[in-house]
Design a protein around this nucleic acid. Sequence first.
RNA 1: GGCGGCAUAGCCAAGUGGCUAAGGCAGCGGUCUGCAAAACCGUUUGACACCGGUUCGAAUCCGGUUGCCGCCUCCA
Length: 473
Amino acid sequence: MDRKKTGIILFNTMTRQKDAFMPIKDNTVSIYSCGPTVSRFIGLAGCRRYGVADLLRRYLEFKGFTVTHIINITDLDDRTIQGAEAAGEDVKTFTEKYYREFLNDMDALRIKRATSYPLVSQHVEEMIDITQRLLEKGFAYERLRSVYFDISRFQHYGKLSRVDLDKMRVGKTVDLDNYDKDNPRDFTLLKRSTLHELKRGIFFPTKWGNVRPSWHIECAAVAMKSFGETFDIQTGSMDLIFPHHENDIAISEALTGKPLANYWVHNELVKEKNHPEIPQERALTLRDVFNRGYTGREVRFWLVSMHYRKAMDFSWSKLDVAKKTVSRLDRFVDKLRTCQKGPVIGEIDQLIYDLKQKFVGAMDDDLNISQALAALFDFIHSINRIMDFQGLDLSDRTKIEDVLSGLNSVLMIMDLTEPESSYQIEELIRERAAARQKKDWARADHLRDELKKLRVEVTDTKDGTTWRRIKET
RNA sequence: GGCGGCAUAGCCAAGUGGCUAAGGCAGCGGUCUGCAAAACCGUUUGACACCGGUUCGAAUCCGGUUGCCGCCUCCA
């Protein structure tokens, strides 16, 4: 493989090694991510899944690729049907609400919107068509008005997860009595609707009976509809490798004879211990975290700062560290903006060059975020020294802002937008400066409180008073 | 039982054969300062789970041991 072309290597679950990344078409990359079930608020595991996909996507864009990113919305499955019923709503109303909230949560985490979010409920015709073709090819069979995939006919079954079907325990989590499959390992393509679903109108008439699709065929159908036979990268979390992605592969490759995705990128999970305030049966949601006072940017930093193939243990204290780090980055940006004038320093160019080299070198290597962030912190350290001892020339400051802006287009952990000032703020700061000069501390402290109400925090330094917006997101 | 992952300082975490083993947090010392808070600078704890092997040389490769975790065809 020619590594020079993109420079990027990715750990590919299919080959179990870091492979040089090469898109099918020059300059464009197609990514498919298994999407959420819109029956509840998103949890931290889901946040990580899309956060990792976002980091990958943004880095590819940073490298100059045009990325098409598809995330399906699972709005037709057991959970959504049951959830809608429990809420006393029809499935559409119920899922639309959670779909909307999913997008809000993604926005809060600064996860870029996907190119499109196909609803699986709108691709049932394709799923029925795929099932028909699989039956014709002999990869599927019908039993009692459900249609199953016959894995014994697909000789590559297990190549992604490397499971050895002969050595696996069958029936540990499957109630074998409930199925009419020839082999308990076969999986469902279309399942007959239950009486209850029929009454609620949740069924699709087919030649085999009134059915609804299974999860596996939903993903496979949406992916192929979006991208055709083969796309570049499929992302998901580790828990999807088996059986879900294995089944996606079985369906699509039985049909086309071609690989569904060239690269399979799986992130590790977020592990949670018990939280006293959260009911045991449900995982912590992003909402829970926001309600504790953490911002989207802080959560994003926490999610993204750990290498994607390493399991994360959730704890509030880790979020506190993230909060602190994000705050430190903000203060660095503020300091950069308010830094006193200094000479042009040749060393700056070298520091910027080193930062870029290290950042790209680290991210190219399977998104080695730890090294990338270390490079950023080293850079900040060096610039801080320069600001403390010499000050910065405007031209140098602009160069620094430019390089940070480039890195931030990938990381999205800094807030580089210029805070807009106002006459009111300027006036209060002037008044306070006058009061301080007269050593009227009571007046100065009062004005500081007034500014705080306007969400402005002032900092007194030997070179005068600086201020910053108190960040909310 | 099968497949896979992990083990690096007080905590988090890079590093996969060879310079003084990144970076972050906490700690300690200092600067700034009316106060406050923050920030910044400097810096400590002399860290590679255990046993054996390969090698001139191992955190890194191989074998074994221990411990922890995930998945194993309900649903997603």
